[in-house]
Amino acid sequence: MPLLKNNQFVNDEWTRVADADALPEGAKIIVNSARLIQDWDLLAKYTGLLGVSIANNERAEILTPYLSQLSLIVLNFPAYTDGRAYSQAKDLRLDGYRGELRAEGNLLLDQFQFMHQVGFDSFAVNERFALQQWQAASKQMSLAYQRGLFRISGEREVWSQRHQGFAPWEEQPHAG
């Protein structure tokens, strides 16, 4: 499954570590939220980079105490019609998380720009669509009415444009 980041396919350097497995030294690992919380004393001293995956029925707030030490958070779309991870992503970004935020699951072209706008910046996509289709899908609309978007596709916020001189809702640096 290709990993899409900054509109390019890249190698996925992250390893998923199952609950019972030992932690590989100095790697980039993804654990689930239960293990993160349970083994925090150990994981806080981990020598590599730490990522976590949460289910879409978990509250993003459970990660709040750990955010500064996380380099990757993986959110899931079990079906493209299940939009919970959009709110989880937005919550995490509003909470100040600036690391990589990855979408995985049933990802289709037509929701791709929405995902960027709420703060996702990497995508575990399937092989059905070519790179240029993803690239085009990331900027189908050049405008958005909402403010406080996690701007990465370069669309303009209509209200901020109309009323210039005001800072955007939040200054958010590009991540990833």
Partner: peptide, 13 residues
């Protein structure tokens, strides 16, 4: 109407 148009977070409720 404007705020809710193609709202990225609330299009798959």
């Amino acid at each position: 109407r404007q705020w809710s148009s193609l709202h990225p977070e609330f299009s798959f409720l």
